[in-house]
Design a binder for these strands. Structure first.
Lengths: 224, 224
DNA sequence: ATTCGCGCAATGTTTCTGCAATGTTGGAAT
DNA sequence: ATTCCAACATTGCAGAAACATTGCGCGAAT
C-alpha cells in the first residue's frame, strides 16, 4: 500500500507519515504541485492525499490534470479551507473525498479504507491469436488460459508480434521492441530467438505461427 | 438515477426529496430498517442514503447486512451523531461516505456524484490464497484465522502479491509497492525479502507459494 | 540493554542469451 | 532451368544475467 502525500506544511506531513506508517502504509511526500506531477509520472499510487494551499498554486488544479492523464487513484483533499463551497468544488473536480483540517487521523484512515474498497478496475487488455492469449498489462502469455512461461527475450518477441498480429512487423521494429538502446547486438541473436519461439509454439500446438516475410520482417497469425 | 432514502424524520425526507428531484434523481423513501430491507430486495438502487436513528434500531446495522447480501450500492450515512468515532464506525462497516446533519444539500449531491463516479464493484475485504487470508483494509495477513506476524517489508511484499494473486506482479511494480522513493535500494534487498517470505510460507505450510517469473517478476498462487 | 528488521554484500545456483558455425531457402539473373 | 547469393534457420556452447540464500552490522524500536 503506497500513497502520495502532497502537503507543504512539514509538521502535518511528518505527523501523517508517522500515523500512516503504523498502518503499514508507505508514503511518498512531496510539497508542491510540480513535484506531485513528477511523482505520479510512471508510478501508480493506491491513493493521493492532496492539500489545497501549495507554494506553487491551488492544489485542486492538479485533480483534473491527473484525471486527464488517466490517473484514477482515489484522491482525498485535505484542507483548512473547510467551507462547503470548497468541498463541492473539490468533489466536482474529481476528488473522491474531502476532509477539513484539523481532523482525526483515524478518520482519515477510515476514509482511505472506504475509497480503497472500490477498486480502480482497469479493463484487462488481452490479445488473442489462435489458442494464444496475451495480457498486455501483465506481460503474461497464456495458452488455453494456462500461463505460459517464456524467457524474457522470447516474451518480448511474442509481445511485439501479438500486438501487431496479422500485420508484418518490420525487422527493425522488432529489434527495437526486444532490445533497449544501450544493448547492441552484433549477430543474428534476434533470429535465434524467433527460431526458438517458433519451435515452442509449434510444439505446444498453439494455433498460431510465425511467418517470415523475407527482406521485411515477421508476421504472427493463426494457423489454418 | 434512483436512490433509496432511509429516514424517519419527515421534514428532512421531504426536503431531500424536493432538492434531489431538481437534479432528476428519483427517491424511494422508507422510514425504517425493516422497510429498507424490503425495498432493496429485488430492486437495485444507484445509491442509498441512510439515517442512523431509526424507529426500529440503529441504521448502521443495515450496512453489513446489505453487503453480505451482495448489494454493492454506494451508501452515504446521514446523521446527527456527528462525532468522529461514529464516522469511523460507519465507514468501517462498509459505508462509502458519512455526512453530519445539518448539511448543505448541494454538498450531499456533490458527494453522491463522487461515490457514483467510482466503480460499482466492491473488492472483497479479505483475499484468500491457499490457507492464507489477507485483510486488505487493515493490512493483516492470517493463516487459518490466526493472525500472522510479518516484518513490514515482507508484509508489503505479501500484500502486493496477494492483491494480484494468480497474476504476475512485475518486479518494478513490487519495488514500487514496497519502497517509498526517498529510500532507494541499491542491492538485492527485494529478492532477500521475497526469499525470507517464501521460506516462511513454506515452513508454515500455507498452501500458497511464490513463483519466480524470470526476467519479469513474481507470482503468488495456491499450491497444487 | 536487547531485540528485531533492514539493507547490503558475498557466494552459490539456475537459466538465458549472444555468438558463431553451419545448414536451408527463395528468388533474381542468366 | 540452373546457378548463385543473400537472407534466414537452427543449434551447441560458454559467458553473463538473473535470482536465491545467508550472515553481518547498523540503527530503530521497545
Amino acid at each position: 500500500m503506497r500513497i502520495l502525500l502532497v502537503e507543504d506544511e512539514l509538521d502535518m506531513a511528518s505527523a501523517l507519515n508517522d500515523a500512516l506508517s503504523k498502518h503499514n502504509i508507505v508514503i511518498d511526500h512531496v510539497a508542491s504541485i510540480a513535484d506531485a506531477r513528477e511523482a505520479v509520472h510512471g508510478r501508480s499510487y493506491d491513493a493521493i492525499l492532496l492539500d489545497r494551499q501549495l507554494p506553487d498554486g491551488e492544489g485542486l488544479r492538479l485533480i483534473p490534470e491527473l484525471r486527464a492523464d488517466n490517473i484514477d487513484s482515489p484522491i482525498i483533499v485535505l484542507t483548512a479551507h473547510n467551507d462547503h463551497e470548497g468541498r463541492i468544488r473539490g468533489l466536482d473536480l474529481g476528488a473522491d473525498d474531502y476532509m477539513g483540517k484539523p481532523f482525526v487521523v483515524e478518520e482519515l484512515i477510515a476514509r482511505l479504507r472506504a475509497v480503497l474498497r472500490r477498486p480502480t478496475l482497469l479493463s484487462p487488455d488481452i490479445i488473442r491469436v489462435g489458442r494464444l492469449a496475451f495480457d498486455v498489462a501483465h506481460m503474461e502469455p497464456s495458452l488455453d488460459g494456462k500461463q505460459l512461461l517464456l524467457p524474457r527475450r522470447e516474451l518480448l518477441v511474442l509481445a511485439a508480434l501479438m500486438k501487431r498480429s496479422g500485420r508484418t512487423v518490420i525487422r527493425e521494429a522488432l529489434v527495437n521492441a526486444v532490445y533497449s538502446f544501450d544493448v547492441e547486438i552484433q549477430s543474428n541473436s534476434l533470429d535465434a530467438h524467433v527460431s526458438r519461439l517458433r519451435k515452442k509454439l509449434a510444439g505446444l500446438n498453439a494455433g498460431a505461427a510465425i511467418h517470415t516475410i523475407r527482406g521485411i520482417g515477421y508476421l504472427l497469425k493463426a494457423s489454418e
